[in-house]
Amino acid sequence: MTDAELSDLVARSLYAVAPDVEGEPIDPNKSFRAQFEIDSMDFLNFVIGLHKATGVEILEQDYPDLQTL
C-alpha cells in the first residue's frame, strides 16, 4: 500500500467510528483524541477497524503509538 492509500484507510476507519466528524481534514501532527474528541471507546473501535481492514494484529501495548496520522 502507498502512503496515500494508508492515509485514506486510516481516515475511513476513523470516520467509521466517529461518523459525526466525517469529511473533517486530519492534521497529521495532532492526536486523534485532541482533534476529534476521540475517547477510549472510539479508539478501541478505531483499532479494531484498522485490524479488520489490514489483518494486522495490534497489541494493546502498542495503542499509545497510534495516536496520530
Binding site: R12, S13, A16, V17, P19, N45, I48, G49, K52, A53
Partner: peptide, 10 residues
C-alpha cells in the same frame, strides 16, 4: 460482535 461501522452502517 462489537463494532464496526467500517463494515456496516450504524
Amino acid at each position: 460482535e462489537r463494532l464496526t461501522r467500517a463494515e456496516e452502517a450504524p
